[in-house]
Design a protein around this nucleic acid. Structure first.
Lengths: 192, 192
DNA sequence: GTCTATAAGTAGATAGAC
DNA sequence: GTCTATCTACTTATAGAC
């Protein structure tokens, strides 16, 4: 996973992988049918990991509370697995069509929760979104970007990063009902 | 550029590139010293393209106006060149160190404008951002995500997409002074 | 279950004819 | 300036000894 994340699937040879785990190339084939299966296993296990962890963490509540839970979960979960996130989003094009379809389905399951939250919140007038579908993709992209700059020994702790991103997402969706009692995005008339 | 964008630099052979442009592999070496130089040329020309176009389009004004200009420029420019954007952000790891440093410097020049806008707006109290540096990266990530789903023949026009993303960014930065006269992100006391 | 050796194919890059 | 042919190295994957 580390090699695929840093160098890319196509640029990594079975010999490099073997050297990294301390065996010769031939020995790898006792554990995987071929290189493609290895990539697929890594991605499938990770996606199942994400879905299971999210299932355990999700809870009912207002769309705003569910959104906060989702955003902080996504950041926190992937800050602990930056390589897996990089591979999951950058190596999709190296999956054979059948494998691609499976991973895409899992990814969609995961992202559907966010889309549902945004749709619910918009329907209830809690969020102000023109297009919850695109907002879903935009938010996921924004959150995923964290892996490109995050360093475990950097100036920010995980919780700081969760709060910064949560603040931006909360505002981006135009939430009108803030947990701290403040309000957002009223037009002039509403105030006057 | 199309091959690198869809298949990845490492997965594309010089023979494939030659076939795509209608020559034999050997003929390519009349135009590029080697494969790495070809990637570097593509990326460098694109980055210079972005910087030149942005230089021509940028204007003075409030941080909010400058932010709107930047966001819509970024979306519009890259919707016309999705392959170039994909390569610029996904093939950085395939650049040799010296080339990587050059491209990174150009990318930083470009993104520095956004960071400056966010810093200025925060200093003036127009935006509410905890960390303009991270907000810069978050916004760029969000905007770049558009290439993963955009299809020229899809349901949305370029201008629709610009507006949707601009709306999300405008709210994400916590802008208090809206061009249409509405306000955002006042706390309860300010209204009462 | 790991090794060495190797098969069969492809990679980037070059040489020299035309 | 493009071609064919080729060099050298490396690729994935397999075979068979231990």
């Amino acid at each position: 996973m580390r090699l695929f994340a840093h160098l890319g699937y196509a640029a990594v040879s079975m010999r490099q992988i073997a050297a990294e785990v301390g065996v010769q190339a031939g020995a790898l084939y006792n554990y995987t049918a071929d290189k493609q299966s290895l990539l697929m296993s890594l991605m499938e296990l990770h996606m199942q990991d994400v879905l299971d962890a999210r299932q355990a963490a999700r809870s009912e509540g207002t769309p705003l509370a569910r959104l906060e839970s989702f955003v902080k979960f996504h950041i926190g979960f992937h800050l602990a697995r930056p390589d897996a996130l990089l591979v999951s989003y950058m190596e999709l094009r190296n999956l054979e069509p059948e494998n691609f379809a499976k991973i895409e389905a899992l990814r969609r399951d995961y992202e559907n929760e966010l889309e549902r939250i945004l749709s619910d919140g918009t329907a209830q007038g809690i969020f102000s979104l023109d297009d919850p579908k695109i907002a879903t993709l935009a938010i996921i992209s924004m959150l995923n970007g964290v892996v490109h700059w995050f360093r475990p020994d950097g100036r920010l702790e995980q919780v700081d990063i969760e709060e910064i991103y949560w603040g931006m997402v909360r505002r981006a969706v135009g939430a009108t009902d803030w947990s701290d009692g403040s309000v957002c995005c009223l037009d002039k008339g509403a105030i006057a």
